[in-house]
Nucleic acid binder design. Structure first.
Lengths: 228, 228
DNA sequence: ATTATCTATAGATCTATAGATAATGC
DNA sequence: ATTATCTATAGATCTATAGATAATGC
């Protein structure tokens, strides 16, 4: 751990408060607010904002990147498997389930919208890896991953938006049905797809609160979605 | 044709100029501009803005609706066919091709982003109709259209964004590959899907400049994307 | 006479900084 | 002594309207 003076800690706390406030506003789609409102929500002085960011765009961009990073770190905790179809399906099933367990994180990512389909973190690189591995192994039909990956990402986004709109629909059902559809798209017989998407999935909540060695075991103070 | 006084015509011209200007700005993702800049781009007085819209949000919303309506009217010109798979594939292939022939229209629709996956105009209602018809006819596997439709719409959006980002990629190839993937998702054998997506498609440009009886045969003045 | 548009601007709002205050380092 | 934060505010920017001007109707 790099030596962190109290100055650094104080700076980090203020910065984190600003990012958290920005994420709250992003989740409500209210980005066109005065800087003063952001700093009041973060409970810091107006001037502090300009100590950390040059303008609102920079803050909101940072806030979305932070959320994307956090989302990627959750996916990274999924266990691997020999069959790329299983790994791929796991990612999709977990991602869509996250819309319910982490609605604010989801809304922040939704704000980035379609740009996220070309992100180098999160679902996209995993989907590309799994699809290409599946094609190479002859498990998937030979299709263009440069087209299949955006379809997967765009579909996941659209379903996330749907779940956000309709709070009664069961996320697990949507997630599994989505994964079946995507496996069929990649050439698996429907029966195989249904079987794979019925396999056990790690408990979502366990992936959200990891007791990793780098993190404090006590409940951490409210901070931005990305743990520092 | 309802009697339109010169007053009405003048009003309509000013309104159309404002909508066209808003669409230009939307295509550049510059919605956070002063009202004065919009009216200057539209070449009307600042005060005229408030004769037609109460605020910028209302204008931009109208501008996107206008573009969506125009997009829907293009799709409506596609010929029908007995096989829902063919009709469905035609819609997808045309939609993605439009990204090249109508880039500004595409960018305006992209601005609405994922909300468009629940729109009641454009690709979504057509996709729902075709998918449900295909399932009913036993042509598609029995899947949940409430999930398949957002996947289709989200995938189309993601590919539109991709084509917008990468101006060298061939839209026809992307479009046909997308349609093949979606037909496979719906349970068609790959060979059938490839055959359907190789069928003749009406010329895109013919659909864009229809010599319908309701429109003036002379080249119309620059107006918003939706002809009035 | 009526309606729409245009010009000028009062007042509201927001940004970004200067200078004061508080916290930490040594 | 140094660094970060906070408070107060000057100046820039924007909104929305009032009143003047131009176009059309009858």
């Amino acid at each position: 751990m790099p030596t962190q003076t109290r100055f650094d800690q104080r700076r980090a706390r203020t910065r984190a408060a600003l990012i958290t406030a920005a994420q709250k506003l992003l989740a409500e789609r209210r980005t066109n607010v005065p800087v003063l409102e952001i700093t009041q929500l973060a409970d810091v002085g107006l001037g502090s904002f300009y100590n950390h960011f040059t303008d609102k765009d920079e803050l909101f961009e940072t806030a979305v990147d932070d959320a994307l990073e956090h989302f990627g770190s959750i996916l990274d905790k999924l266990s691997d498997h020999d069959d790329p179809a299983v790994v791929f399906a796991q990612s999709l099933r977990l991602t869509v389930r996250l819309c319910r367990s982490e609605p604010e994180l989801t809304r922040v990512l939704l704000h980035r919208g379609l740009d996220i389909t070309v992100a180098d973190r999160g679902l996209v690189p995993r989907a590309r890896r799994d699809i290409e591995a599946g094609i190479a192994a002859g498990r998937f039909r030979s299709t263009d991953s440069r087209i299949a990956v955006p379809i997967v990402a765009g579909g996941a986004l659209a379903l996330a938006a749907l779940l956000d709109t309709d709070p009664v629909r069961n996320a697990g059902n949507v997630a599994d049905s989505f994964a079946v559809d995507m496996l069929c798209m990649l050439g698996l017989p429907e029966s195989d797809a249904v079987e794979i998407c019925g396999l056990d999935l790690p408990n979502v909540d366990d992936l959200l609160t990891p007791t990793s060695s780098t993190e404090s075991p006590t409940s951490p103070p409210p901070g931005p979605l990305l743990s520092d």
